[in-house]
């Protein structure tokens, strides 16, 4: 059996490693699919941001491409009315509780949400849903970086990076439903937690929720 399979994405035939998830196969071939939570190294896809929907021929409903393993001969469409509708709603839902003061955000112009908006022609100011204010205090206790949870999209990139870097994870998810947050054990400020200031979490944050106080030169 060959190590590769051939699949067709948006009419283009591409090669993908057998066993690979569709999302990574597409990205590797420069075909863009919106995504926030996907982590290639993780055994089981997080599948929580719900933005990477695609249509797979033979499957009735759109599927998140991070959960679907490539199969030889698979025919995939990254855009369709149903996909676009789900991505738009998912994206607007995320924006509805996101602190949208982009100009004051260190991730401005380098933000995954802005990328998605640009690539998919979506607006950063959504009007369908009432804004949900989160009003979390900014944790600027560490010397070099800070954590503004009002910008957090709960993708889990920081949690995964932290677990990989540190034997005992410093941050993790807590709370349920609308109160779900990334936080330290006992909700302590980072400086008072067991944080070693390795900053891997800051480096992977796609939206400027974890950010350097001074931009690194």
């Amino acid at each position: 059996m060959s190590e590769y399979v051939k699949i067709v994405i948006d009419g283009t035939e591409v090669k993908a490693r057998r066993g690979e998830k569709l999302l990574w196969a597409a990205l590797e071939n420069d075909i863009y699919i919106p995504h926030l939570c996907a982590i290639r190294e993780e055994a089981r896809p997080n599948a929580s941001c719900r933005l990477c929907f695609v249509e797979v021929e033979g499957t009735q409903d759109p599927v998140p491409s991070c959960t679907r393993t490539v199969e030889d001969g698979m025919v995939v469409k990254t855009r369709s009315p149903r996909v676009d509708r789900l991505v738009k709603t998912g994206f607007e839902l995320l924006l509805s509780d996101h602190d949208l003061k982009c100009r004051q955000c260190p991730a401005n112009r380098n933000c995954a949400l802005q990328t998605i908006a640009k690539k998919r022609g979506l607006k950063l100011k959504q009007k369908r849903f009432k804004p949900v204010a989160r009003n979390y205090e900014i944790d600027d206790s560490p010397e070099e970086f800070a954590f503004n949870r009002n910008r957090c999209v709960l993708c889990g990139q920081c949690v995964f990076a932290d677990r990989r870097e540190n034997e005992t994870g410093v941050i993790g998810f807590a709370g349920r439903g609308i109160n779900r947050v990334v936080t330290t054990f006992q909700d302590l400020p980072l400086a008072e937690s067991i944080c070693r200031k390795c900053k891997v979490c800051v480096d992977v944050c796609p939206v400027g929720a974890l950010y350097y106080k001074k931009s690194p030169e």
């Binding site: 929580s48 941001c49 719900r50 509805s96 849903f129 949900v132 439903g177």
Partner: peptide, 18 residues
């Protein structure tokens, strides 16, 4: 359901809220 949503995925966490 909004109260019982675990909050993991976007649609359930924010969709049920809205």
């Amino acid at each position: 359901t909004q109260h019982e949503s675990c909050g993991k995925c976007t649609f359930c966490r924010l969709g049920t809220k809205h």
